[in-house]
Amino acid sequence: MKMLTQKMMWLGMVLVLIVLTVFGAAMMGSVLGSKPKEVPVALVILDQPAELPTGGTFAIGEMIREKLLSSPAMWIPRKRLGKDWINANITERW
């Protein structure tokens, strides 16, 4: 318990807390004020529906697409691109 009575130990702990607070505030200052502008997002669904034992199909990719595109938070303008365009542009870039 002699450690708790030493002034240098308390000074070191306070110094560490101050440094962490300063760096944390500096990081938050750069993150909180930023707003993304026209960030391109691609939703590529190339999966095939799964066959269920009951005879139906389960198209999880289409379900995800419908949920994302029907959301009012997705206010950005959208373009629907075909598979041919996607395949041509992906192979050109890579």
Rank of each mutant, 00 (worst) to 15 (best):
P53R: 03
T21P: 00
W10R: 04
A26Y: 09
A50T: 08
L17T: 03
G33Y: 00
K35A: 08
V44T: 01
L32E: 10
L20R: 06
M28K: 14
M13L: 12
V41E: 04
L20A: 15
V19F: 12
K37D: 04
P40V: 05
L15F: 13
G12N: 10
L11W: 05
W10N: 08
V39C: 02
V31E: 06
A25L: 13
T54F: 02
G29F: 02
M28I: 12
M13D: 08
E38H: 14
S34V: 07
L11F: 10
M28F: 10
P49A: 06
V16W: 10
L15G: 14
G12S: 11
A42M: 11
T21Q: 10
L43T: 00
A26T: 05
G29Y: 02
L11G: 04
L15S: 12
E51W: 01
M13R: 01
G12Q: 12
M27C: 07
M13G: 02
L32I: 09
L11D: 11
T54L: 04
P40R: 14
V19A: 14
V16A: 08
L15K: 03
L32G: 02
A50H: 04
A26C: 08
G12I: 09
K37S: 13
V22I: 13
V31T: 04
G29R: 00
L17D: 03
L11S: 09
G12M: 08
I45Q: 08
L43P: 01
E38M: 07
K37T: 14
S34F: 11
F23S: 04
V41K: 09
M27A: 13
I18L: 13
P36I: 09
L46G: 10
G29C: 01
V22Q: 12
P49F: 05
L15H: 01
V16F: 15
V14R: 06
A26F: 05
L46N: 15
A26M: 07
K35S: 11
G24T: 03
L17M: 14
V16L: 14
T54V: 11
I45E: 12
I18D: 00
L17G: 15
V44E: 03
P53M: 12
P53Q: 03
D47C: 05
S30K: 15
L17A: 12
M28L: 15
V31I: 14
V39F: 04
L11E: 09
D47M: 01
L52D: 00
V31P: 00
V19T: 12
K35H: 09
G33Q: 07
I45L: 07
F23M: 12
W10G: 03
L52I: 03
P49T: 09
T21W: 01
V19M: 07
T21S: 12
S34K: 11
A26P: 00
V16T: 14
A42I: 13
V16Q: 06
S30R: 13
G12P: 00
D47I: 01
I45R: 06
E51A: 15
P36A: 10
